[in-house]
């Protein structure tokens, strides 16, 4: 190994190093999930020039800006429909949506369920830090009941979404949940998700130290990782109805759904060629120029 290689983190070629250090706080886990994603890219057989990353807005929304692939930093909540257009326009692309819980399940929830219903061939990596972090720790659709947030100063009395349950019900082909501490399992799930010919969701529970943890007096990043370590339980194939997350309660993780169903383009091609016959040219399989 030459000296130059010794000086470089082996994922640096996948990052926009001219933008590092990133904006995330000390102890934030988003960087760890990015590393897990980069590992998945290194291990994957997919040509890197054919992978696009789309993010929305928020802390995790900044991921697109750090990944050195074709990358799009879009508007709040609209990463999935943007990715839908991108994928349909250029089906040879592998499109990864990398964004936060507020972006995908709060403001963008409607797009999520419809993309899952259509089985759009997208890989969605959702970093769930239980709150709106970029804006200062407001209550989110994923904040556990009883947790405190800057806009729930008396505690949250709403019931949060169970992300895998929602993804399952909406029709996703692949659904997994991990914590940021499950480094290699996150990598493996992202690989499996990208290889899946349909809609896949990987939820990664990630520490937000500056806001969620501080407001709830949960300590620092290490304390949150310890919570993940102590309270997470791997149950592959668990019934998605049983995956609710209570405040500092048990975290059921694993791969819950892995099923086959025609994706949007395949379903369209199959249906249209049946109905229109020779009038229809199969979409997305024409040329590779």
């Amino acid at each position: 190994m030459n000296d130059e290689a010794r000086q470089k983190n082996p994922i640096e070629h996948l990052l926009r190093m001219d933008r590092i250090p990133h904006i995330w706080c000390p102890g934030c886990g988003i960087g760890t999930v990015v590393t897990s994603f980069a590992e998945a890219l290194r291990k994957s057989n997919i040509e890197l020039d054919k992978i696009a990353v789309v993010s929305g807005i928020g802390c995790t929304g900044r991921v697109a800006g750090y990944i050195k692939l074709d990358s799009f930093h879009t508007t709040h909540g609209r990463a999935i429909p943007f990715a839908t257009g991108l994928k349909l326009a250029n089906p040879e692309l592998k499109v990864v949506v990398f964004s936060g819980d507020g972006d995908i399940f709060g403001i963008g929830g409607n797009h999520f369920i419809h993309a899952a219903r259509r089985n759009m061939d997208l890989t969605v990596i959702c970093v769930n830090n239980f709150n709106y972090a970029m804006t200062g720790g407001q209550v989110a659709a994923t904040t556990p009941t009883d947790a405190n947030a800057s806009t729930a100063p008396y505690g949250n009395f709403e019931q949060p979404f169970s992300i895998p349950y929602l993804a399952d019900a909406a029709g996703a082909s692949y659904v997994a949940r991990w914590t940021a501490l499950h480094l290699r399992r996150v990598t493996k799930s992202i690989q499996e998700g990208m290889d899946k010919n349909g809609f896949s969701l990987i939820e990664v529970i990630t520490p937000c130290v500056t806001l969620y943890a501080r407001r709830n007096r949960l300590g620092d990043g290490l304390n949150l990782l310890k919570y993940y370590y102590d309270k997470s339980e791997i149950k592959h194939g668990a019934d998605t109805r049983d995956l609710d997350i209570s405040y500092q309660g048990k975290l059921i993780v694993g791969k819950f759904i892995d099923r086959e169903r025609p994706n949007f383009i395949d379903a369209m091609n199959q249906h249209m060629s049946t109905v229109l016959g020779d009038d229809y040219e199969l979409y997305g399989r024409i040329n590779n120029d």
Binding site: A5, W24, I30, T35, L183
Partner: peptide, 18 residues
């Protein structure tokens, strides 16, 4: 390589000693 994979800052990595 666990340190390499867990580091959120891409600030640590391990090379294999021949």
């Amino acid at each position: 390589q666990l340190c390499e994979n867990i580091c959120p800052e891409f600030a640590i990595f391990v090379t294999k000693k021949e």
